[in-house]
Design a protein around this nucleic acid. Structure first.
Lengths: 139, 139
DNA sequence: GTAGATGCAAAGTATTTGCGACAAG
DNA sequence: CTTGTCGCAAATACTTTGCATCTAC
C-alpha cells in the first residue's frame, strides 16, 4: 500500500484537522466515486457537525494538493476519487451508472503522440467511455 | 458541405422559429466552442429581444436532436459545437485555452476494443487532451 | 385553430465566500 | 500566540421552470 492521505498531508504541509482526517478516511474507504453530497452524507455519519462548506473546501484543497482527483462525468455533479500512483480511465455504464476503471497503455502512448504531433506536451487528459452491456436484454 | 441546421430541423420535425433560426445561424458561423453566455451575446447582436432562457432551451433541444454537441471541459461552463459527420476530439492548450480538434482512428479503434473487453458496446466517449506548447518559453 | 415556443421573473442546483469563533502547530 | 480552519448563512453562478402571451404550421 502507498502513502495514506494523512501522510500526504504531512509531507505537503497541509494542516491536519479532525474534519480533514475524517474526510480523508471516508474517501480512502470509498471505492466508488462519490459526489460532494454523498461524501458529506458519509462524513456526517462519523461527525454530524461537519458542514458541507468544509467538505467543499477540503475536496478542493485535496485536489490542488494532488490527493484527490475530480471527475465531471456527463451531465452529473463533480465526483471525487483518491489519487494514487496507478493512473486509469473510466468506462461508464450508461444504464446503471456503474463505473469500471481501466488502463490501456497503447491509448496512453497514442495520446502523447497526438499531442506531440500538434506541438504540445501533454500535461493532463481525460478519457471516458460510455457503454451499454452487451447481452443486456432490455430495449 | 452537409445539411444546414435549418434542414436538420425540418427533417427532424423541429419547429423553426425566428429565434431558433438565429441561434442556428450563429452556431454555424462559430468555429470556436462558445458557452451559453457567449452564444447569448452573439445572438443578442442579431436580435436583442431573445432571452437567455430561449438560448438555454434551444441548445438543449438542438443537443437532443443531434444538431449540437455539448462539451464540459475542465472546470469551465458547458460549451457547444455544431455536430457534423466528422467526429473529432479536442486538445486544449492549458495556458491559452485554445482548442485544437483532432482525429485519431487508432485511438477510436482501441476505445472500442477496451469497451468490448469489458463486455460493453461503446455508445459514446469523451477524450480531451490538455497540453502546453512545446517551445513555449515561459516557465 | 392549436400545440408548442417565447419572455420574464422566480425557483432550483451546485458551489463559494465573508465573518466571528475556534484550533493546530 | 498566530495563522489558518470551521460553521453558518448569505452570495454567486449556472440552469431550469411556471405562466401568460404569442406564433408556426
Amino acid at each position: 500500500m502507498s502513502e495514506t492521505i494523512e501522510q500526504k498531508c504531512l509531507s505537503k504541509g497541509v494542516k491536519l484537522t479532525d474534519q480533514r482526517r475524517i474526510i480523508a478516511k471516508v474517501m480512502s474507504e470509498s471505492s466508488d466515486h462519490p459526489d460532494v453530497d454523498e461524501l458529506y452524507k458519509r462524513v456526517s455519519k462519523v461527525d454530524p457537525k461537519i458542514s458541507i462548506a468544509t467538505v467543499y473546501r477540503t475536496v478542493k484543497l485535496f485536489e490542488e494538493t494532488g490527493i484527490l482527483t475530480k471527475h465531471e462525468f456527463k451531465g452529473g455533479k463533480a465526483r471525487y476519487e483518491e489519487l494514487n500512483e496507478s493512473h486509469h480511465d473510466h468506462l461508464i455504464d450508461v444504464k446503471t451508472g456503474e463505473i469500471i476503471e481501466f488502463v490501456d497503455e497503447e491509448i496512453e502512448k497514442l495520446q502523447n503522440k497526438v499531442a506531440q504531433k500538434h506541438g504540445y506536451k501533454l500535461v493532463d487528459h481525460k478519457l471516458e467511455l460510455y457503454g451499454v452491456k452487451i447481452n443486456s436484454k432490455d430495449e
